[in-house]
């Protein structure tokens, strides 16, 4: 009855150590990837950053012929297109999340939820090709002329809607981005709304509140952190989105006062020009753009994750 075989136990211990180390190495590799991304971007961007200095992010010029590069136009384009996207997608996403959690008949809840999630699975290049061939002509023929006629002469904001309706441009890119980030915002908000304890909502209804009053005065305050987290997650996506924007932005390195004019964003400039860039300074300037994008999106996404995490812990403590 030799139950314990010392050789067997020793072998088990070796396997155990090997497996444990393999999982640990894989986990550490995730950290190394992020570190590697940061280091390689800084190294690649160094020639441009040391050559132009701080003025790299304050100059609008982008001239491969004279080797003069400034990031202001792409930064402007990135910020403005993302802002347009958020203005459209946040209320719409909020509406969808509200519909799914409070209004939707149970039978439809799953199909509609899945449909929204499928919209998130559509690759960005599909949004790009659709934006260029379907959305841009529609905007050019119907929406932009209306904007120019009705808003173009207003004081203060009129200049945003001046000029010819190109179809492609900052506004169109913003609209495509809005459709792209919509499912992320809607899905996160839905999940956040689901964490509100039913007891709180029932208390609201018990006091005679309408559905909207319960949502606005109970659900929203309770899930505020999560809502902001979801919005920032969507913003992170919008800032870094590449292909969809590249198709419809028009790739013009200038800052126009009109939203209808073509522009450029950080990611679309990289996608459009990287393989064609000749000269070290040109390539390095594009990588410097990538570094900027990395810093911006990292900050936004990290903040979003921190907020969502806080919410998770809190709801975990309540349940």
């Amino acid at each position: 009855m030799a139950i314990i075989d010392p050789g067997h136990a020793a072998k088990q211990l070796i396997y155990e150590r090997a497996f444990r180390s393999a999982t640990l190495i894989a986990a550490v590799l995730v950290l190394l990837i992020l570190g590697g991304v940061a280091i390689s971007l800084v190294r690649g961007a160094w020639p441009a950053l040391s050559h132009f200095g701080f003025s790299f992010i304050t100059r609008e010029v982008w001239n491969p012929v004279t080797d003069q590069f400034g990031a202001l136009a792409p930064i402007y384009g990135t910020v403005v297109t993302s802002a347009i996207a958020m203005v459209i997608a946040v209320p719409t996403g909020f509406g969808i999340a509200l519909f799914l959690t409070e209004l939707c008949p149970p039978l439809l809840k799953r199909p509609i939820g899945v449909a929204v999630e499928l919209l998130a699975a559509v690759p960005s290049i599909i949004f790009g090709i659709w934006g260029l061939f379907v959305l841009a002509p529609v905007l050019q023929r119907h929406v932009q002329p209306w904007l120019i006629r009705n808003l173009g002469d207003l004081p203060a904001i009129g200049h945003l809607f001046k000029g010819p309706p190109y179809g492609i441009g900052i506004l169109t890119a913003g609209v495509v981005l809005a459709i792209m980030v919509l499912p992320f915002i809607a899905a996160t908000m839905r999940d956040v709304f689901d964490t509100v304890p039913p007891m709180l909502k029932e208390s609201g209804y018990g006091l005679g509140a309408t559905t909207w009053e319960v949502i606005w005065n109970v659900v929203v305050p309770h899930s505020r952190v999560g809502i902001v987290g979801g919005i920032m997650l969507g913003l992170g996506r919008a800032l870094g989105e590449t292909m969809a924007v590249t198709f419809v932005i028009g790739n013009a390195h200038r800052i126009s006062s009109s939203l209808l004019a073509p522009g450029t964003t950080i990611s679309s400039a990289i996608a459009n020009e990287f393989t064609e860039a000749v000269g070290d300074l040109y390539t390095s300037s594009l990588i410097a753009l990538g570094l900027l994008l990395f810093l911006i999106t990292f900050t936004v996404i990290a903040l979003a994750q921190a907020m969502l995490r806080r919410l998770e812990r809190r709801s975990g403590a309540v349940v």
Binding site: G240, G290, I301
Partner: peptide, 17 residues
Amino acid sequence: FINDVLLSAPSIIIGLF
């Protein structure tokens, strides 16, 4: 935390890396 950041990070950055 880092993994969640990578999950949402722009893919073009990974391409540059």
